[in-house]
């Protein structure tokens, strides 16, 4: 059972309190009518299934009811970070050890984000 740091409650909570909501950072096309059937199908149905670092959306359903993102290793189940909607991950497949400081925005450099790192 995962132990997940809710970036809004600012503490670790049991997995029972959360619902997984699939891949993170899927943006609805701004003009759906401009999408081809294929593009629309991609948006609706196609998701990544990486071995290793993956970004997921979760909701703190029994808690603050806020949606947020989780960077999780799908092999080890390690959670590398959690971050609010609208922000970008610090840990990516490209930067499994974390993006270098010069590529981070202010919010990402705040030490509080580290609290979400699960050891």
């Amino acid at each position: 059972m995962l132990h997940i740091y809710c970036p809004y409650c600012e503490e670790l909570r049991e997995e029972e309190e959360f619902h997984p909501k699939g891949q993170a950072h899927i943006t609805r096309p701004a003009d759906p009518d401009a999408c081809s059937d294929e593009e629309w199908g991609d948006y609706l149905f196609f998701r990544d299934n990486p071995r290793g670092i993956h970004h997921e959306m979760w909701v703190h359903a029994i808690g603050c009811r806020k949606f947020f993102n989780v960077t999780r290793n799908t092999v080890t189940y390690e959670i590398l970070e959690t971050y609010p909607m609208g922000e970008q991950p610090r840990f990516t497949a490209e930067y499994p050890e974390g993006k270098p400081a010069d590529q981070l925005n202010d919010a990402q450099q705040e030490p509080s984000r580290q609290e979400g790192v699960h050891v």
């Binding site: 619902h19 909501k21 943006t27 609805r28 959306m57 909701v59 359903a61 009811r65 949606f67 909607m85």
Partner: peptide
């Protein structure tokens, strides 16, 4: 309820 929050929080904040 979760559906409404999902769209509000993630697409149309």
């Amino acid at each position: 309820m979760e559906w409404l929050e999902l769209w509000h929080q993630t697409e149309w904040p």
